[in-house]
Design a protein around this nucleic acid. Structure first.
Lengths: 214, 214
DNA sequence: CGGAAAATTGAGTACTCTCAACCAGCGTGG
DNA sequence: CCACGCTGGTTGAGAGTACTCAATTTTCCG
């Protein structure tokens, strides 16, 4: 057994875990809470690129890339395990299983990114939000965090907007339309999916890209 | 030296090299020509997810993922080297340098996907197309395929539209607007970037995400 | 030279954005 | 204990970008 030196770090809501353009030194795994990756465009607007739940790597790419190409922020109070990149690389050299698990994590990460490209490029506001809600529900379920179709949902409407390429105002109206149609219920940080099949239909959601059970 | 059994395969324009939902058996490297990855949504519209030039892996993820989560098509007449996934995994186990090179390729691939998410989510039509043109110019230059700001450009307007999340009609009008402003010249499959700095400005292009020279 | 694919144009529509105001919940401090 | 300030959510009206549909021209190839 190889001992892997790691340190726990705790971040408050909205705190930056990594910043675009800065040199990288560690890789981090999310232990508790939620985090997201984002990039800012020249006029200051933000695009959220992915959400992460406990157990996922936030930045394995740091192993080989020396400067961060995006920002990482805590969504709520979150803690991570940070490992020096060289230690992780050594561990991966020594242990085939770990190497494979980490590579698999990053390959599935890519698959999710591809689906997000589709979501932003080819679905309207209702579809984009429906798809996002389905994805999060499915991932939380797979992780055993939520058992059914009701789960804690600490995203603000502005964050949903930044993840779906919409404005906060239009996100608000679109959520209302989903509520009015009896598809979801969302209040005080709690989401209930009332009609899973309909939401899947609207969001054109197919879980294949999540590669569960590989 | 480990011998790697591979076979060359040639594809005509628009031919499918891989189809979503089908089981995977090989990994392919593009030898000649151009290729792209895409996904189709339920109403049949297409979203292009990435473009690939000679020398790039088209589907390393097949090594660990048993079913394709997207389609791969040849953009023009293209040839690839196909390697059985298990052979590639064995080679990666044996050779640290190759393992590192392949992982690096897939990590940069992810970085490009992240930038595409930003492109689709937070830029308008002119910005999206400008960014795409800058990215292709920069990658071709880095690969030594094009020396300057003029290069062969076999994309149809429909393909540009599918890559930028626009319609073909709007893509046409947007290209005209870029031409009218003296930023580009595009005809008979040949693109000239007439004002690189202005195009970079419009597309909010920053080459960092391409991780050249890592 | 003919036919198909690609590019272009026009007119009307609709989705999403912008701006600006207003409301609700909540933690803090006087 | 209540006022205050802040964040997040909601609403309205008007503007604008991008879409749809359908026709037409141009280019590309066999």
């Amino acid at each position: 057994m190889v001992a892997l030196p790691w340190s726990k770090r705790v971040f408050n809501r909205d705190a930056y875990l990594a910043r675009e353009g800065e040199p990288t030194s560690v890789c981090t795994v999310l232990l508790n809470g939620l985090a997201f990756r984002q990039k800012l465009v020249s006029d200051g607007r933000r695009q959220i690129i992915s959400f992460h739940i406990a157990g996922e790597f936030l930045d394995v790419q740091n192993c080989l890339l020396d400067v961060a190409d995006h920002n990482v922020q805590a969504l709520n109070r979150a803690s991570v395990a940070a490992v020096h990149k060289s230690a992780l690389i050594d561990l991966m050299s020594a242990r085939v299983n770990i190497r494979r698990a980490i590579w698999l994590d990053s390959l599935i990460d890519s698959s999710v990114l591809r689906e997000w490209v589709v979501n932003l490029g080819r679905r309207d506001a209702r579809g984009r939000i429906a798809h996002l809600l389905c994805e999060l529900a499915d991932r939380l379920r797979a992780a055993g965090v939520a058992d059914g179709e009701t789960y804690d949902f600490p995203l603000t409407q502005e964050q949903i907007a930044d993840a779906t390429g919409l404005t906060a105002v239009h996100t608000n109206r679109t959520l209302q339309s989903l509520r009015k149609d009896g598809l979801i219920s969302l209040s005080s940080s709690r989401l209930a999916i009332l009609d899973w099949d309909a939401l899947v239909e609207i969001g054109d959601f197919n879980e294949r890209y999540l590669h569960h059970g590989v």
